[in-house]
Structure formats: C-alpha cells, structure tokens
Design a protein around this nucleic acid. Sequence first.
RNA 1: GCGCCUCUAGCUCAAUUGGCAGAGCAGCUGACUCUUAAUCAGCGGGUUCUGGGUUCAAGUCCCAGGGGGCGCACCA
Length: 596
Amino acid sequence: MRGRGAAERGETRRHLAARGTARHRGRLPRDRRTTDIRAGRRRRRRHSSCDSGRTRRPGETHRQRCSRDRRASNEGERMTEHDVTAEQQLSAEQQLVTDSNEQREVRLAKRDRLLAEGDAYPVSVPVTTSIRAVRERHAGLDAGEETDDIVGIAGRVVHIRNTGRLCFVALQAGDGERIQAMLSQGEVGKESLAAFKELVDLGDHLFVHGRVIASKRGELSVFVDRWQIASKAIRPLPNLHSELGEEFRVRNRYLDLIARDAARDMVITRAHTNASLRHTFAEHGFVEVETPMLQTVHGGASARPFVTHSNAFDMDLYLRIAPELFLKRALVGGIDRVFEINRNFRNEGADSTHSPEFAMLEAYEAYGDYHSIADLTQELIQDAAKASSPDGGETVVWGDGTAHDYSGDWDRIDLYGSLNERLAEQWTASGAAPQITVETSVAELSALADAVGITLDPKTATHGKFVEELWEHYVKPGLTRPTFVMDFPLDTSPLTRAHRSKPGVVEKWDLYVRGFELATGYSELADPVIQRQRFVEQSLLAAAGDPEAMQVDEDFLTAMEYGMPPAGGMGMGIDRLLMALTGLGIRETVLFPLVR
RNA sequence: GCGCCUCUAGCUCAAUUGGCAGAGCAGCUGACUCUUAAUCAGCGGGUUCUGGGUUCAAGUCCCAGGGGGCGCACCA
C-alpha cells in the first residue's frame, strides 16, 4: 500500500511536499504546472483544507484522508459551489485549461519548452519515403543486419521504451503501417537522447532520420541519427491494448481510426465501394448529377421529413427524403442514364439498420425496365464485392471470418407466389391454406395477420401493407442468397407503373441481402395523368393524418406532362451495401454517425 | 414516443448485506545499449454522470434530470 511506506518512515506532509518540489526541479517547475490553472488552484485549496490539524489514520493514504475530510466538512461543500459559479465566468481559453488534467499539463509544459527552443509544430519535416515503402524495400533483412539506406520518415508514436542509453519508439503511419526507430546515445549524442526522453510522448507525431537496419531481435528499424517532433500531442492516447467501448469509438472516431485496423479498413472499403459503383455506372454510360437537398415539397418516398427554414425566402424548407423527382426531371430533359450518390434525411427511428441521415444511390435508365435495372443492380453489387474482397472475387469475407458469396445470377421470386407457397407449407389450422391474391380483402388479410401477431394501424392499413407484412413474416427469414422479390401490390407504390400483364400489381422489386432490404427497383410510371391521381390519393392520406404521405408536386407533374421516357429506376442504401459487404452495423459503416 | 438495462481515474474495468473507492495500462521520479502490453524501486491521479432525498454512514437504496445500450412502434 502506497501510503503505508511513507507512514512507516515517519515522514510528515511537509517532507513529502519538499520531495515533490525537488522532484520537479528544473524541467517541470511546480509553479508552471499549476499557475493560472483553476483546477490546480482548486486542488491546492482542497489539500490545504486537509491540513487543518487532522491526523492521518494508520495505513491511510493522503488521498483517503482528503476524501474523509471532504465528506465531514460542510465548509468544503460551500467552497465547491462557489467555484462552480466562478467557473461559469471563465473565458473559453481559460475553460480549455480548466478541463485539463495532469497528463495534459505535463505535455503542455513540454510544448512550451519545444516552442521556446525551436518548434513543436513545424510547417513540415523532410520526409523522404513512407513506412510502407521502407518495409517493402527491406522485407528480408536478417537480425542484426545493417543497410546503407538512409531515410527520413514520420509517424505517430504508438509505443515507446526509454531504456537507459538505447531508446525504442514505434511510429505508425496513417495507413496503420508501423516501424521501429532506435536511438542510441552513441549515434545521436547524450544531449539529443536526453531531450528525446524528456520531450517525446505516446501520441506525438515524430520525424526520424537514419539508416535502415534490423535490430538484434530482428525488428526492422531506423537507426536514428537525427529526430524532430513533427507535431506535439497534448492529450494522452487511449490505452491501445484494451478494446475501446462502442460509445467512445463512435464519439472519438479519430482515436478509433488510430487504434483499430477495422475502423481504418471501413473507411477504405467505403471509398473503394463508391469508386466501384461510379466506375460500373460509367461503363454503362450513366451520368452522375447532384440534385437539391433543400426542397420546397418533399416527395419521392414515404417518410417523415426534417423541416428547416430559409431566412432569405422566409419559408420552411424540407431536407430531402429522396432525389427521385429531380432525377426524373433530368430524364424528361434527356439525361437518359442518370444516377446520384448522396445523402437523404428521414426524421424517423434510429437503430442498427437505420440512421437519420444515410447515403443513397438512385439510378434511372431510359428505355429500360425493372428487369434491366435488376441486371444493372446485380452487376453494381458484384463489382463492389470484387472491389472489397481479399482475392478480387465475388465472395467477401466479413470481420467475423464468415464468407458471403454474391456470384452468379440471383433468384427472382414473386411476392404473392412465394407468400402462398410458404403459407401452404406452414398451414396448421383445419382446411386448406388460403390463397392470397390481389383480390383478397383487407378483413381476410387482417385475420391472417392477427393469427401471427401482426397488427396495423386501421387508419392507414391497406391490402398492400398487410400483404407486405405477411410476406416479411413468412418468407423473408428463409432468404439466404441475394434475392429479387418481384411484383408488389399497387397501393404501396404510388410512383410505379402497373404490371404489363398481371392486374393489381406494379412492376417493382425489392432486393433482399443478408435479411434486409438492400435496394428497390421499378418500371417507372410515365403517365402524367395516373401520376396526378396517385399524388392526389396520397395527399388525401396526408389530410387523414398520415405524416409520411407525399405532397402534390405540381412542378414535377408539369415536367411529366412534357413526356418522360419509359424507364427503369433503382434506389440502394450505400450504408446498407457496406453492411452487406462487411457484416458491420450501420454506425460502424458511417465515419461520423449522429450522436446526441 | 413507451418499457427495461447501464454510467466509477486519461483508457479498460473491480469494489461482498449500505461500512476506509481499487487494479492493469497510461503519467511522474530514478535505474537499465535490443525493448516491442519490457523489467525493477518510488510517487501522483477521483465532483463514483448531475441535482435532490433516506441514513450514524450512499459508488451501492429512493425520486427527478442527462448520456449510452437493448426491445417495441415507425421506417430504408
């Protein structure tokens, strides 16, 4: 026990304090560490209240006595209250200092010394090569072997051993590649080595210059002849040996990126996936556009929008819930193959597969239909899988080691047909299993739904909603391979054209991958008269209190009346695509997810 | 929105029935020319999320608020 040692030696508080002062003599004067630092003053005041004549109990540490005294002292409570009031008046700069802790103060003192003697934040350092390049160039070096290759490299200090006259430090590059640097007193000199020990901390960016060698233990190293701080860190790095908590990782993603390969890989995978999508689109002659985020009417999907306000126009605007109606205007204008990868915003629930803002891909192909757009979607995803798979094939490997095959042509099943098939298999009640068709009444569907515990709000429940719910209950859990589910009920898809031969359904598919809906595709509705009817029906729903129903977009209808070519259209969640490729949750696929 | 769980040192976590708030890493001082989660000796570090309450005594029990998680609802 640390307190007992001092007590046994019979040392008084004053002796301890004197030793503390001597300890900091020279390099880190006590005055400097606490001057103008409110937290320091508070700490001293608290300690001074400990010196009020009470004695330490046997075996008790100083800190234990402090906390005992604090509890017993009303005066201490009042002083804390007073401090909080005073703190509210501190400037932002002082506040920054108030938030500091001991480890930060020590680093700030080192920063001061660096600035006084040279620079803690040089405009640049003379880097000659990358850590990765050095590792590749000298992969086969034997233990103890030396080279004449002189390099200048920089990286973040992630490991440090200050051992006597030979120091070791591991530098990490942004790509996660690491290399060791060795500083011997013989090479850099006594002063330089002492300065290194005194000034360099875990987390600093460090430049080193010297020969590439392998240590006696075989570790590839730079044998340093010259070093320089590239950027002094004033906060300590988190413990790199224990796993960081989920909340900490999300809120401090930059530290997550330093500490965890998987976090870094996610960013790269996402970039490669986006590049792959754009490349595949380009191969097919698609043009990328950017349509408005701020919209006066929200449309293109059934979702609750975020509302914001324009001061210039003095009007409320909606953050877009989908780019669809603008991309279709582009189709009218003759951009026959068009796509957009950008953010949508939906004011709805957030969980492991839903985020308030999410990246969405939408694509429209004039003179295509929902079959051609399904072909394209399959190709887009298979190309993306190749871009992120370890061997460039169509099988990706998740972080948990499981392999997921996206190759071949994916099944295309019928919504009603697959539902009836599964219903027949699982039917246990007396009599024959019911056949669900577009004619099946809401009452009948409601009874079937009730039997498996599905209830819908009677105000907005329709034939289509019940059929989709029943399908999700009976069929969806059994899907393992990527599957296109085709031909949906008309009433849930107001922007889609009726099926060319099957009455009562629309030419729409949902693509299910790993148990969730990854993309949806349509033969787009081109008839402006029917489009207007659908919008009016939706706005009546809105009047009836469904906040997700669409508004009538007169400007869009006008565009439609000039003639939109027949087209296939598709929408895909980029975050969900990443989830399918990596097996991670949506908060892991988004670099900086929204946190409260 | 509703229900349940959770919040302790810079980080990861302990703390028995309500009974002196601890460990590892990180940090400080010293030793060490082959360390790599080094080792050895010594030391510092806490508003136990916040505010009330019960109690001789609260990290622990109660109430309210905040952050986070999970489930339900809504949605992609």
